[in-house]
Amino acid sequence: MSALSDQLVTFAILAYLVAMISHAVEYALGNGRATRPRTVAAPARELATVGAGSGAGTGPSDVGPAVATGAAGDVRRDPGRLAGLIGVGLTALAALLHLGALVTRGVAADRMPWGNMYEYVLTVSFIGVAAWLAVLAKRPALRHLGLFLTLVMVLLLAFAEMVLYVEITPLIPALNSYWFVIHVSTVVFSSGIFLLGFVPAVMYLMRNGYESGRRGFPYDLARRVPKAATLERLTFGLHAFAFPVFTFAVIAGAIWAEAAWGRPWGWDPKETWSFISWVIYAGYLHARATPSVKRNVAVWIAVLGFATMLMNLFGVNIFFEGLHSYGGLD
């Protein structure tokens, strides 16, 4: 089982990689033909779909058929679009392999697969990709973000595989608690959503620069992604969703820490960095609600928030020693 899990991870990475290439092909083709009238029409149609999707707040069923028929017509004429759809399909396939890897790992270990950093990264990234597919079902026009999402997935999984990998071991007694399931599942879940929110946040920053006339290196990448306002709203939506879950996760962690170590909060490095992330994300929500703060400043705060999450996941496990040092790396 354990070996199967490892193989599935490898296949999942490959599938994400191919998905990334498909998205890149779409991207390249799209750029090449941007001057031809037929493809100029395509973004306009997509934006209209975005508008309908977000404006009316309707379910996937409403947008789905319209897009499907539109797509069928387009695909034959537009190989770029076909490549993009293949990219989405491959991402879904990769997500299935990814899920398979998690399940087999869990079965092999006879517990939830969240016992060390390797498993943790595997789970967080899965949540991210699953949430991405859910968002995509609702807003198909966001497909162009797939390139960046798959890039993030490839990087994360490869890093997990090469640096963080550890053999399966059972949990140490301190982790053996139902709070383990509650705390870790919510941390993982919210981190996955924050991870997903990070993608439109970065895209927004690029697109925003593009829309205000910048054409330099990172900005021109954003030529084909949705409008800045759409990306910004998506960023906010994902963060607003993840924040209470993360808050709950931190509280659950404190309750567990009280039972395990006798104090709900002891400023252990892991706790300190969760506090920092929480405060930064609270700052993002504040900044966004403050009219005098520009939107791109707010989004930068969200990006910073994600950097602190990464610091907590990798930095704290690797550099600091604390009660939470369960990374499994020696």
Partner: peptide, 12 residues
Amino acid sequence: MRTALILLFLLA
């Protein structure tokens, strides 16, 4: 709100 933001940031 601006001060609250700055203080939150400082706290972090």
